[in-house]
Computed example of a mutant assay.
Amino acid sequence: MRKIILLFTCLFGISAFSQIKVLKNETLVEIGKDNSVGLYKKEDKFTINYQDLNTANLNTFRSFSFQNLNKDVSGLYELIINGFIDAPESNIVLELPNDIIELHFEKNFGQPTVQFIQYINKNKKYVGKSQFLNKKQVDKIFGKSNGKSATYEKPGTMNNINSANQSTNTASTAVPAANGKDKKSKK
Rank of each mutant, 00 (worst) to 15 (best):
K71N: 08
F105W: 00
Y126I: 10
L7K: 11
N159Q: 12
Q131Y: 04
P97L: 08
Q19H: 08
D86Y: 11
N169E: 14
Q115T: 05
N82V: 05
P155G: 07
V73K: 03
S36L: 06
E78T: 15
D182N: 10
I4V: 15
K33S: 12
A164Q: 12
Q67N: 12
L79S: 00
V114G: 01
E89L: 14
I14R: 05
F132G: 06
K140T: 13
I117E: 06
K125T: 14
G110A: 01
Q19D: 08
L53T: 13
N68C: 04
A87W: 01
F61P: 03
N121L: 11
G75F: 02
R62T: 04
N160H: 14
L76H: 01
A174R: 10
G83C: 03
A174P: 02
N35D: 15
I31N: 03
G128W: 04
K136H: 07
P176T: 07
Y50M: 14
P88H: 04
Q67I: 11
M1S: 15
L76F: 02
G143C: 10
S90W: 06
V22D: 05
D182K: 14
M1K: 12
N162T: 11
L79R: 05
N123A: 03
M158W: 10
F66E: 06
G83I: 04
G110M: 02
Q131A: 09
V22H: 05
L53A: 09
I5M: 08
P112T: 05
F17L: 07
N91W: 01
N70F: 06
N54K: 08
Y77F: 03
L7V: 12
D52W: 02
S130N: 04
D72C: 00
G147F: 08
A177V: 09
S130L: 02
G38C: 05
I85T: 09
K181H: 10
F109A: 10
I81K: 14
V175K: 11
L133Y: 00
N59W: 01
S18C: 10
M158N: 15
L69I: 10
I85F: 09
E78F: 09
D99F: 00
N54T: 02
T157I: 15
D34F: 15
D72Q: 01
I81M: 13
V22A: 07
K122Q: 05
D72R: 01
K122N: 01
G75Y: 02
S172D: 06
K41N: 04
V138I: 11
K41F: 01
M158Q: 11
F116T: 01
P112H: 04
F17V: 04
F84H: 08
L69K: 03
Q111P: 00
K148R: 15
K129I: 06
I85Q: 11
T55H: 06
G156P: 13
K184D: 14
L53F: 10
T60P: 03
F46H: 02
F84C: 09
